[in-house]
Design a protein around this nucleic acid. Structure first.
Length: 125
DNA sequence: TGGATGACCTACA
DNA sequence: CTGTAGGCCATCC
């Protein structure tokens, strides 16, 4: 994220990026969330992709981007951290459990930004 | 204005 | 499990 284009919309004065960043900052220590959850929390549940975009823009920021994984618990964005092992390393240092495949154990560390009851629950494990 | 890209998700074969 | 296909939305060119 370098420059934000000027928006004429009053409500959209802030990009939804800011919302995503806000939620990312709220992710507790040792917890992780998913792009889809952040997307829904930001109001674009249908597009988890754009959340990934926000993360890409937030790369190098103070935001704990390493706590954001995909629905499967895979560290799909590890390659964007400079070092492929950095993301996993950070999570491990926070006490996050990993599977032998190198994925986060969502059932233990999944954190949901929204308290809204979801019909879709984690089917993992 | 429209195509291309992306740290995604779901469904299906 | 891998590959293909569609969709979703923001951004860049």
């Amino acid at each position: 994220m370098t420059k934000k284009i000027k928006r004429k919309k009053k409500e959209q004065d802030k990009d939804f990026f800011d919302k995503v960043y806000g939620f990312v900052e709220l992710i507790p220590y040792g917890k992780v969330t998913t792009y889809g959850a952040l997307a829904e929390a930001s109001g674009i549940k249908s597009s988890a992709r754009t959340v990934g975009w926000a993360m890409n823009a937030a790369a190098g920021s103070n935001l704990p981007c390493h706590r954001v994984v995909n629905r499967n618990g895979e560290l799909t964005g590890k390659l964007h951290f400079g070092d492929p092992n950095l993301m996993e390393d950070l999570l491990r240092s926070e006490g996050v459990a990993f599977t032998k495949e190198g994925n986060v154990v969502m059932s233990k560390h999944f954190w949901q930004p929204t308290n809204v009851a979801k019909k879709k629950l984690i089917r993992n494990n």
